[in-house]
């Protein structure tokens, strides 16, 4: 096992106050450590020196909870493909390296402290339609809805999203289209999601806009940054679903109005 001597430039910020980069030396980091374990070591040393440790979100440390959210050398989750920060290991770095560590940056993800951001916008988007309205106890027998293997597999591809927000952080527009398209796409692909397809699509896209996420200009950085390799094809599908839903919404609203005026 080799030891690495690293120079860190870490973003420090207290809530809404302006932040800055702090230079932190990180000598003798074992190359077997994960990136977050390197952060643990650095924090232990800061604490020992009476300094404030670096705040960062993390929990499962096995790449599935989606909590960790660092931009490493300008890349959300760092340089390794299909890997969350918690699964990135220090052997991917070399001794003498300077590593820039920042939070996931986006207007809709305000910084809470240091590398910790508020991704509550994602929850609010989900509340705007990311569900099938089925009450507990009212479900039909599981096998009464046959779903082809290809359909189930496609839905699972979208459902693999861990909601980390790397797609937003990687996008120059801070667009949330990859996240929203994956969530809409999962349910809109499955038969269970059809009755609410239109409501869901409009609700979630409108909430996404209300949260201040930018528009998609087909840069596809999101797919490259996604630790679960969600495909940008879901964005295409969302655009199609949204167009249909928006037209139906206008026509439907018109019909309702006409019906209302006519009255029986």
């Amino acid at each position: 096992m080799a030891l690495l001597n690293l120079h860190l430039k870490v973003w420090r910020q207290n809530g809404s106050q302006p932040g800055h980069f702090q230079d932190i030396e990180a000598p003798e980091i074992p190359d077997h450590a994960s990136f977050l374990e390197m952060m643990d070591i650095v924090n232990e040393r800061l604490i020992a020196n009476g300094q404030d440790p670096i705040a960062f979100d993390h929990d499962c440390r096995e790449g599935i909870c989606g909590a960790c959210s660092m931009t490493i050398n300008g890349m959300p989750h760092g340089p390794e493909r299909a890997t969350t920060t918690c699964q990135l290991h220090m052997r991917k770095f070399r001794t003498g390296d300077t590593i820039w560590i920042e939070p996931f940056r986006a207007r809709s993800f305000p910084v809470v402290k240091d590398l910790m951001v508020d991704r509550g916008a994602f929850d609010r988007i989900m509340q705007a339609g990311g569900f099938v309205s089925i009450r507990t106890g009212s479900a039909p027998e599981g096998n009464s809805i046959p779903i082809g293997k290809d359909v189930a597999d496609a839905a699972m591809d979208a459902a693999a999203c861990i909601g980390c927000g790397a797609c937003v952080a990687s996008c120059k527009n801070a667009s949330a289209m990859l996240f929203v398209s994956a969530k809409v796409g999962q349910l809109n692909t499955l038969p269970q999601g059809q009755p609410e397809r239109q409501r869901r699509t409009l609700g979630m896209v409108r909430q996404m806009d209300a949260e201040g996420f930018g528009n998609c200009t087909n840069q596809y950085e999101c797919e490259a940054a996604c630790p679960k390799e969600i495909s940008v094809r879901w964005i295409t599908k969302l655009n199609r679903d949204y167009a249909v839903a928006a037209v139906k919404d206008i026509v439907g609203a018109g019909r309702q109005q006409a019906g209302g005026e006519g009255g029986d």
Partner: peptide, 16 residues
């Protein structure tokens, strides 16, 4: 049954 109705993408056989 409940999870299927919610749209949980369980693994399927070719017959659905």
């Amino acid at each position: 049954d409940q999870c299927v109705a919610q749209g949980v993408p369980f693994a399927r056989e070719y017959g659905g």
